[in-house]
């Protein structure tokens, strides 16, 4: 039994390693490299998969549905943005400050929020996003309603900015993606994984098992994603980064892919982001929100038809294949030895 298990584990690891290698080499693929729009979509997929994965820990594994993650995201984005725009320096110190601040905010707001459960928790996180959204909009020091527009400075890793190709951004997004997926993968195998599943059943134990401290770490990672988003967009404004719409994206992607699973966020992002970007590209020009009408309909359809997420389809297919294999082998294969 044991060698079997190890073999299965190794096979899974090999699959992951192959996948990572594929991602590393992706910019060399001519179809992607030649068309920067495809590249843009791939970068966004990686970024949003990372963000969704950070949400997945609290929302998926622990079952605490938070709509407040755009607060951390926004703090990260503003940290990078202000370092470059307001102070005219490199983004790095700003990113560091943003990450620390986001963690601090997470400590403060998780204290009252984790006392709540179910919808009360969800609505409390709504309220927090709205409070931040409205205060940021009128706070002149951080750019207020105008937002921050990046100046053009020398490209390169120092300034975390590239103009000619998107390859630099791609590798940054990839590192972000691997860091967050690696963390979650590690957590899943770790004792903590069992804790998390326990918390999903009974929430009172959350605090005693240290979900709070995990929430803080993941807030920091979310802020890192926000900083990258700011550097990539070359613009930070409140409705874009700290808003319910942004928060909903974290949730939508994860749930569409499969909440509480490792691959779920990646699957969700790989479906939702191209959907959003290409509907915008094809139908956005029609004006009057046609792209969003289609987007809304597709969300309803996907959620209603596949409430367990896309991962459910994969499991169904896998089961089907297994069944057929077993049927081919004969009766003995799926029964007792």
């Amino acid at each position: 039994m044991k060698p079997m298990q190890r073999k299965a584990l190794k096979k899974k690891d090999a699959l992951w390693l192959g996948f990572v290698a594929l991602l590393t080499l992706l910019p060399l693929a001519p179809a992607v490299a030649a068309n920067s729009f495809h590249m843009h979509v791939v970068i966004l997929i990686l970024l949003f998969a990372s963000m969704a994965q950070a949400w997945n820990i609290i929302g998926g594994y622990c079952g605490q549905v938070s709509f407040g993650h755009s607060v951390f995201f926004g703090i990260g984005a503003y940290g990078a943005g202000m370092a470059v725009v307001t102070y005219g320096g490199m983004p790095w110190p700003g990113i560091l400050v943003g990450v620390i601040l986001a963690a601090a905010v997470a400590v403060v707001i998780s204290y009252p929020c984790f006392k709540l459960s179910g919808h009360y928790f969800a609505i409390a996180t709504f309220a927090i996003v709205e409070i931040f959204n409205r205060s940021f909009l009128v706070w002149d020091w951080i750019g207020g309603a105008l937002g921050l527009d990046y100046p053009l400075v020398k490209e390169g890793l120092m300034n975390l900015m590239w103009y000619n190709t998107k390859t630099g951004y791609y590798y940054c997004a990839l590192i972000l993606f691997l860091t967050i997926f690696g963390t979650v993968r590690w957590l899943e195998g770790h004792r903590f994984g069992y804790y998390m599943r326990a918390v999903r059943e009974g929430q009172e134990t959350a605090e005693s098992l240290g979900v709070n401290s995990t929430a803080v770490k993941l807030a920091a990672l979310t802020a890192l994603c926000g900083a990258f988003f700011a550097q990539y967009n070359l613009r930070v404004d409140t409705p874009m980064v700290v808003s319910l719409d942004m928060s909903m994206k974290f949730v939508l992607i994860t749930v569409l892919g499969g909440a509480g699973t490792l691959v779920g966020p990646l699957l969700g992002a790989a479906v939702l982001i191209p959907l959003q970007e290409y509907t915008q590209a094809f139908w956005g020009g029609l004006g009057g929100g046609v792209d969003l009408i289609i987007f809304g309909l597709l969300i309803i359809l996907m959620v209603v038809k596949q409430p367990g997420g896309m991962i459910g389809i994969f499991h169904a297919v896998q089961k089907g294949i297994l069944k057929r294999k077993n049927a081919a082998k004969g009766e003995s294969a799926d029964g007792a030895p």
């Binding site: 009057g288 046609v290 969003l292 009408i293 809304g296 597709l298 969300i299 309803i300």
Partner: peptide
């Protein structure tokens, strides 16, 4: 939420 996006944009 999908319905809300749909109605708003219609």
């Amino acid at each position: 939420f999908g319905l809300a996006i749909f109605l708003k944009n219609v």
